[in-house]
Design a protein around this nucleic acid. Structure first.
Lengths: 106, 106
DNA sequence: TTGACATACCTAATCTGTCAAGGTATATTT
DNA sequence: AAATATACCTTGACAGATTAGGTATGTCAA
């Protein structure tokens, strides 16, 4: 498997929000989750990840808060907002459409 | 359905090559084919289309030749090369992976 | 205890593909 | 004669992803 991020471009936000729908999480852990679910075939670059956080927060789709771990490290947690939840649903619909179009053409 | 090309970004080349796998075709007709197969929900802009042709030809994935239609209009036909056929297979594999990753995360 | 690695955050500059907005020209339909 | 469909193409701007940096703390093995 060799997946460039460009293949999922435009869907990064959806992926992140889908992870946050399960529960609040922080950058490092979110990326780990994505890696695990793709059998370590795919990971977002950190730049992509943090750029996406900024974008999502600016749009009001997620909020953030700092929390300290047991080990003492500071983590920035993100939570999906109601608005984000709505946006996620729409993006998932668009994703289904995209799948149908591409698969229909083959 | 409201699909921006950005949602399919990175897959445009695959889509075009998939159309060309059926038979040689020219720009205008290729776009019509894509529109029909997506129930007119999706079409590439012409700029995207011709940019993609250039890119694909530069990579040796397609070749082109001019041919006149019965009506007298000149059409630039494109044909999938062996190299393009190989690339298409790989891209389709990557597409399957992308689908699995995204759908697995939801 | 020191060095390597994992954890955890972030930014600036660059690259790439798409889009908006233009352009040319011929054939067909009204 | 005008409108529409067919048919090609380019330039400049934009948005999202990548490359390549940066800071700092915790953990574990040698």
């Amino acid at each position: 498997m060799n997946l460039t991020g460009d293949l999922l471009r435009g869907h990064t936000d959806m992926i992140i929000m889908a992870v946050l729908r399960r529960n609040d999480s922080y950058g490092y852990a979110i990326n780990k989750t994505i890696q695990e679910f793709s059998d370590h075939a795919f990971s977002l670059t950190e730049a992509t990840l943090y750029t996406s956080f900024k974008r999502l927060e600016a749009r009001g789709y997620i909020t953030s808060y700092w929390q300290e771990s047991e080990s003492g490290k500071k983590r920035k947690y993100y939570a999906l907002t109601d608005k984000g939840s709505e946006a996620l649903k729409e993006q998932e619909k668009a994703w289904e459409d995209a799948k149908n179009i591409i698969d229909g053409l083959r």
